[in-house]
Amino acid sequence: MIGASGTNHPVSRPTPGQTIGPFYGYALPYEGGPDLVPKGHPDAIRLHGVVLDGAGAPVPDALLEIWQADRTGDVPRKAGSLHRDGHTFTGWGRASTNNVGEYSFTTVMPGAPFIAMTVFARGLMNRLFTRVYLPGAADPFLLSLPPDRRETLVAEKDAGGLRFDVTLQGDRETVFITYPGHS
């Protein structure tokens, strides 16, 4: 709530967010959205998981976006995420959950501790931000979390790459992140 403190007021008040609603499915997802690299790429890994609600039920109408560094840790500054050309790594992807709440990205292991993630869903009033930490990664933010919450941000290594579940509510609730100036 820095904006309310008086000293750091933005010039203008932010436009509020709203739920993505039930009908984004024919507008936002697109062919190739989940594939930051082609599935056959020699460095390709799969980042996948399930989105769950407070009753442990899968959320079939969620949309996830990821944004990440390349394998060397550089932040990509290249265009071309909507029309994938098959060789440019742009660092950004978008995936819908399927009818059992599963999502799947094809990407590379970043040369950085985490992949940034945004979560949207019908019934979720505003987007949520989180981080997908690589197994074994540590940074001051992750270490500042209570251990039982910390593990919700750490992906699990599996045969194809990384598994990361998003739990919107409840005991296993994922740690969601705000940034200074957000309220």
């Binding site: 949520l128 979390l145 940034y179």
Partner: peptide, 10 residues
């Protein structure tokens, strides 16, 4: 059932 009940971390 879709809103977080725990406070976010900054």
């Amino acid at each position: 059932l879709r809103h977080p009940t725990k406070s976010p971390y900054q």
